[in-house]
Write a protein that binds this DNA or RNA. Structure first.
Length: 269
DNA sequence: AACGGTAGCAACCGCTATCCA
DNA sequence: CTGGATAGCGGTTGCTACCGT
């Protein structure tokens, strides 16, 4: 006897999620929080496997997700972390707020891998494919990547400043879009104890940004979601991933109020 | 305009880890 | 301690949009 299937295969829908399904899942998670994924499809009225719901939520619907391509600094960080951690995508993702393991894995396989190969770096070992190159160039693969891409880990930090504009008012948000990542690169690369700790299962940074359990009792204030300048960005990005398709009818009145309070009504939603 | 090849990404599958009775 | 249930992870697949011919 094999392992029991995670869900009843019969009648379980597969394939791309529809806006309607997204709506149901968002609705459910917002009002009930994340718990017992197996029960979610039933309770949310979805004909999906719980696993599929979890994946859809964590990889696509989660509020704190950034959308769009990884910045150069983020790539840099991924490369460096990969050199140290290997294919531990979840560990790597934990160091890139707003990015999922799946996203990073995909980006690695489709973009970074090719870049590294183009540069003569083995994406698996992070060693130069041509040993002669390695003898001439003593810099690390990560540094090599930076050089080829005309970015300097430390320069990026200096030029772009800190991502968090609240802490750095000297540069515009557009200019410092990769500052946080470069700071992460710098701090992580130079912090041996941090790297060591990453081998242990310490709490990832992401956990501080995304509280898994919406605080329903505080719904009047923030519906348990991390609404801030950074964290409400997901709502502004909603139309990028289809929420506009079903409108915000899926949100309760309270949630709608919150959305309006943070500027979501700017497009007449 | 039609077709084929390719790249990118969302989603699935199967395995492992963890929790709990 | 054991075994079942569930969550999480990483590899892989398959769909779709894009691009070149």
């Amino acid at each position: 006897m094999g392992r029991q299937p995670c869900c009843d295969k019969l009648g379980v829908k597969k394939g791309p999620w529809t806006a309607e399904e997204d709506k149901k899942l968002i609705n459910f998670i917002l009002s009930n929080g994340q718990c017992c994924w197996r029960a979610v499809p039933k309770l949310a009225g979805l004909r999906r496997c719980g696993k599929s719901c979890r994946l859809r939520w964590t990889n696509y619907l989660r509020p704190d997700l950034k959308r769009g391509l990884l910045t150069q600094a983020e790539e840099q960080l991924v490369i460096d972390l990969h050199a140290r951690l290997g294919n531990r995508w979840s560990k790597i993702a934990a160091r890139l707020p707003g990015r999922t393991d799946n996203e990073i894995k995909n980006h690695w396989n489709t973009h970074i891998k090719k870049k590294l190969l183009k540069m003569g770096i083995d994406p698996v070992t992070h060693e130069p494919l041509n040993k002669q190159v390695s003898s001439k160039d003593s810099s690390s693969p990560a540094e090599h990547f930076s050089q080829v891409n005309n970015i300097n880990i430390h320069q990026v930090e200096q030029n772009d400043g800190v991502l968090n504009s609240e802490e750095n008012s000297t540069s515009s948000p557009a200019e410092n879009s990769s500052g946080e990542e470069s700071l992460l690169v710098d701090s992580i690369c130079s912090d041996v104890s941090l790297i060591n700790s990453m081998w242990l299962d310490e709490t990832p940074l992401m956990d501080t940004l995304w509280d898994n359990t919406p605080k329903v009792e505080n719904a009047n204030n923030n519906m348990g979601l991390p609404i801030g300048e950074d964290n409400c960005a997901w709502l502004l990005d909603c139309q990028d991933f289809g929420i506009h398709d079903f409108g915000f009818n899926c949100f309760s009145e309270v949630e709608t109020n919150v959305l309006q309070a943070i500027g979501m009504d700017r497009k007449g939603l």
